[in-house]
Every structure is written in structure tokens, then in C-alpha cells.
Design a protein around this nucleic acid. Structure first.
Length: 103
DNA sequence: GAGATGACGGGCT
DNA sequence: AAGCCCGCCATCT
């Protein structure tokens, strides 16, 4: 079936290393500007070891959204930093610099 | 098919 | 500037 989730995964796979996108941005690119929440819900079901670069999706404030388990956000940050993304003193990334504008 | 869920966002305090 | 509240939307139970 044509799940919205599948579309989310396909789009996120297109985000290049060293770049990030916001949940709302993903939703907008898929044609549903108000489905940001559903995007986050979709990523929640990703299995470990997936080929989807889920770490490149953050919230509109440039922060890594909290979740369970608590170590997950830490892993996400390490993955991003290993791609060259820099976090400031408030654990946020500068979206003006790292935001992926789409294809 | 109705109610609950949640890795969001924007606006107001 | 940081939090809180409330509306949104697709999926899950």
C-alpha cells in the first residue's frame, strides 16, 4: 500500500551526508505541510540497521528531538558530527547553514 | 470504525 | 529566550 511512511523514508534517503532537514520540511516536500507530526511518527517505526539516514531529521529549532530510550539522541548527535555537522553551545545546529533545500 | 498515540510546529505568555 | 498549550495528521490498537 502507498503508506505516507514509505514516502517519508524515500525522501529522507535523498538527504546527503552533512545536511539536515526538519520534520515539517519533509512533510512540506511530500505535499502535506501540516503532517510534521506524522513524519516523526513514521521514523519511530524504523528498524535498527535501516538504510534510511534518520539521523538527518531534526526539529524546526535545529535540535534533536527527545525520545525513548534516552541514549538514542546521543547516538544521533554522534552520527551527525561524524558527517561534519557542528552543534553549538546549546546543542543546536545552524539550520541556515546545514538545512538541505531539497533536490 | 472510534479513540489513542506521538522523533512536530506555530503562536502566545 | 524558554516554556506551555493546542491544533494537525497518518497510523496503530
Amino acid at each position: 500500500m502507498m503508506h505516507f511512511y514509505e514516502q517519508v523514508y524515500e525522501l529522507v534517503r535523498q538527504v546527503p551526508p552533512g545536511k539536515v532537514v526538519t520534520y515539517g520540511q519533509v512533510a512540506a516536500l511530500l505535499g502535506s505541510p501540516r503532517s510534521a507530526r506524522a513524519v516523526g511518527y513514521a521514523l519511530r517505526y524504523l528498524p535498527r540497521g535501516t538504510d534510511v539516514p534518520w539521523q538527518r531529521v531534526i526539529n524546526h529549532r535545529g535540535e534533536i528531538s527527545p525520545r525513548f530510550p534516552a541514549e538514542s539522541p546521543l547516538i544521533q548527535r554522534l552520527l551527525l558530527e561524524s558527517e561534519g555537522v557542528v552543534f553549538d553551545g546549546n546543542d543546536r545546529v545552524d539550520l541556515q547553514v546545514y538545512r538541505w533545500q531539497g533536490e
